[in-house]
Nucleic acid binder design. Structure first.
Lengths: 215, 215
DNA sequence: TTGTTAATTCAACACATGTTGAATATTCTT
DNA sequence: AAGAATATTCAACATGTGTTGAATTAACAA
């Protein structure tokens, strides 16, 4: 839970690895590239984190708890503010998404890279199932519980498939590939997170309602 | 346009590369793994396709035209069947998605792998912008034109952001990571494409309407 | 059949990779 | 300030990498 003091250079390594893994994936990055970017000798990564895979995991885990906290407290807050029947679908989805927007907007590039890394892992057939569940399933299930309450009578299968749609759209947003920029000829920018989230929230809420309340 | 005759083993190489690149990404695969999987010597890939990157591109391009044809004719068909005002949002999205479901359901594993590779590339900050536009933008813009007509008064920015949401959900579906399987404890399966597309179509249609017709 | 071209394998090079153990520098404790 | 523990670098290893040119086989034309 609490942050280890950790040597200053060991966090430089994590920062560099975070950035490079997010851009090129696990196999697309060499320890020497990481070391060079961090301004450090190659052997130091091994001293602090062990094998390359352990460094990859360390990067992935470093900010996970913090992110989960932010999202969980956003959910709690919107539940506290809501009346009898609990928060609306929009409010729940907003609580799920806004902490990400905030994390990306702090100007701290680290969070940008981290979330792009999560996107890479989430979309990878090799890493996805392997790494996402352990850190994120518990929180996601809390959100789905809240959605189930806001959508009375919804079938579980529908709820999970709708979450899958939300997760996919979010993943592509976090990846910030720049594809929408060229496709739209500059009318939309991958880096304009507010524009993305402002539309994603009503979009997803309408989708959930359409699929889960078709009774 | 027309298929080169091509030696039998050169397609074995493409098949093997397709499968492995889809699972592990460009850097996660070695030419020797590809050659072994194809039952062929390492040097043969070089003889047929040149450098590793050219092989990667060849795999990516092999099925692109075929896929675009299928989607385009699905769009044309639904436009022909529609009345005065053109097809509905649902019909357009269905034309966009069903050819993928069909391609994946032929039992031909090649299409499964290919579409997972497209998902990998589309979600990659490094490859995404670089490789997707040239092959797919033209067709995607045709679909967005059709949607613009079905959603009178929609702002371009809204249309493109909505397409971004659709593209993201689709990408995660094509990747078939298996994450939804564990998250839902088996209630949903990544491999159950019909279940995925059946819900994706009304979900996305409702989202488009909500965001693009909020006048 | 014979000569020609395309397809495939063989052998190997030059270089990059993850990893390790010893050597050096830095920080902390007392 | 001396000594111990931690942090960092140095040098190098075994192995794996993409790539290449020569050698061999298969397909084909005359």
């Amino acid at each position: 839970m609490s942050e280890k003091p950790a040597s200053p250079k060991s966090e430089k390594i994590l920062d560099a690895a975070e950035k490079l893994f997010a851009l090129h994936g696990y196999d697309g990055v060499t320890l020497r590239q990481i070391a060079t970017t961090a301004g450090v000798d190659v052997a130091l990564a091994n001293y602090h984190f062990g094998r390359k895979l352990a460094l990859f995991s360390a990067v992935f885990e470093r900010r996970a708890a913090h992110l989960n906290e932010a999202r969980r407290s956003a959910l709690r807050a919107c539940q506290a503010n809501a009346g009898e029947g609990g928060p609306s679908v929009e409010q729940i989805i907003e609580a799920f998404l806004r902490p990400l927007e905030l994390a990306q907007e702090t100007g701290d590039a680290g969070w940008q890279h981290y979330l792009a890394l999560v996107a890479y892992i989430n979309n990878s057939p090799y890493w996805g199932q392997r790494m996402m569940s352990r850190l994120f399933d518990e929180l996601v299930l809390e959100f789905i519980d809240a959605l189930r309450q806001a959508l009375p009578g919804a079938a579980d299968r529908d709820l999970f498939w709708c979450y899958h749609n939300l997760s996919g759209a979010l993943t592509l947003t976090l990846a910030q590939t720049g594809r929408i920029d060229t496709l739209s000829q500059g009318k939309c920018l991958s880096s304009d997170l507010q524009a993305a989230y402002d539309r994603m929230i009503p979009f997803m809420a309408a989708g959930f309602r359409e699929v889960c309340m078709k009774s």
